[in-house]
C-alpha cells in the first residue's frame, strides 16, 4: 500500500460513529487529506459495496469536496445576504486582487485557494471571511486584502 492509500484506509476505517455511509467515508477522507483523490473513490466504493459511479455521484454533489490536492492556504468569503448588504462584493474584489485571481479557485502556484461561502455562520459580524478556517468578521476591503497578504507570508501547513 502506498502512503496515500494507507491514509485513505485509516481514515475510512477510523470512523467511530455507528452509521457509516458513502458520504461519511468521503467526509473522513476529506478531513484527512483535504481532498478526494481517485484512489479514495475506488477505496470507498469497495468499502461500501457500491460502484465507483455511485460514489462519484455523491462526491460531485457536495461542493465542499475537491478532487485535487489543496493549496497551502484557503480563504473563504461569505456571499450570503447579510454580508452582501454590508459590502461583501467589495471584500471579494479586494481578496481576488490580493490573490491575483479573477474568480473563485486556486492560484497557479498553489499557495492559495479562494472560495465563496454561502454563509459562514457569523452573520451578525458581517461582512465575514475566513483564513484557514478561522473566522474574521467586520472586515472591509482594506482589512480583507491585508488578511490575505498576511496569510501568504506564512508557511503552509500542508493539508
Amino acid at each position: 500500500m502506498s502512503g496515500l492509500e494507507q491514509r485513505i484506509h485509516d481514515a475510512v476505517h477510523g470512523q467511530t460513529q455507528p452509521t457509516v455511509t458513502v458520504l461519511s467515508s468521503l467526509l473522513a477522507v476529506e478531513d484527512e487529506l483535504g481532498y478526494i483523490p481517485k484512489e479514495a473513490l475506488d477505496f470507498v466504493a469497495g468499502f461500501s459495496k457500491a460502484t465507483v459511479n455511485d460514489v462519484w455521484a455523491v462526491a460531485s454533489f457536495y461542493p465542499n469536496f475537491r478532487f485535487e490536492p489543496p493549496a497551502e492556504h484557503v480563504v473563504e468569503v461569505c456571499w450570503g445576504a447579510s454580508c452582501h448588504l454590508v459590502g461583501a462584493m467589495g471584500v471579494f474584489k479586494s481578496v481576488l486582487e490580493a490573490a491575483g485571481l479573477e474568480d473563485e479557485g486556486d492560484t497557479l502556484d498553489k499557495r492559495l485557494t479562494v472560495r465563496f461561502n454561502t454563509c459562514l455562520g457569523a452573520c451578525s459580524q458581517a461582512p465575514v471571511m475566513s483564513m484557514d478556517h478561522h473566522l474574521a468578521g467586520r472586515v472591509n476591503p482594506e482589512i480583507a486584502g491585508k488578511n490575505v497578504a498576511r496569510l501568504l507570508e506564512q508557511e503552509g501547513h500542508g493539508e
Binding site: Q17, L23, L27, F61, N64
Partner: peptide, 10 residues
Amino acid sequence: IEIALTGDSY
C-alpha cells in the same frame, strides 16, 4: 443519539 454530518448543501 447519533450525530450525523453532511456536506455543503442547503
